[in-house]
Amino acid sequence: MSLETALRATEILLALALLQQSLEHIFWARAERRTFFIRAALAIVLLTGWQSIWVLAALTAQSVVLLHRFGGAYNGGSDRLALLILFCLTAASFLPPGCGREVAFGYLALQVLLSYVVSGQVKIANAAWRRGQALADVFAFSAYPVSQQVRGLHRFSGLMRAASWAVMTLELLLPLALISRETLLLALGCALAFHLANAILFGLNRFLWIWPAGYPALLWLQGLVDPLVGWHAPTMFWGG
């Protein structure tokens, strides 16, 4: 994927995620309606691609105001990634084509990778996660399960252990998927299923919208590392 295509794809996915977030605020919190109406309008303009550079700058400035209003990110990790994507896109837009723009977008790709790897690393270092007890605790008494029925899943210790290992394996092995475009697409499909499960079980719907907005950066990064480490299953098995 070329840098320009990846940047535009990221803009579109980010705009959809910001629009989704803004609509939630507009239809729920009267006090914030005007602010998020402006944000939704900017997201729609970003979708069209018109004057992206200034739209991104306006969204970035408004994001700083929102950080002050809520005393930090409103929705934890998902809003933090949304802002990081926004900052990286804005930096890339203002930098001239070439190395600077690639560094700004590459930083986003690195952070998306780290979001999985660091999360997996801190879990696997914890014996409670390896036993499945930590995930059982998340279901049993954290604020996240969306219903009492979902909370009851903590009683299935085998399921908790299997799910813990599935999550840790996915998070830790995701960087290895950069070895080829096919493996990366497969890994990103698994990651998307992981975010879907989090949205269904824990109500983390904003993660489901914003994390895929970081995937074009990984697809672009994979194109860069492909000549260095590329592994192509069809060539191996079909003899080119």
Binding site: Q20, L23, E24, H25, F27, W28, A29, F70, Y74, N75, G76, A143, Y144, P145, V146, S147, Q148, Q149, V150, R151, L196, A199, I200, G203, L204, N205, R206, L208
Partner: peptide, 25 residues
């Protein structure tokens, strides 16, 4: 926290879940 959610509600909440996101805030 509701006792249970229907599949339809879970699906709808993928797109629009403001009360829950306020709770997380």
């Amino acid at each position: 926290r509701p006792e249970k959610l229907t599949g339809w509600t879970m699906l709808a909440r993928l797109f629009f879940n403001p009360a829950w996101n306020e709770a997380l805030f």
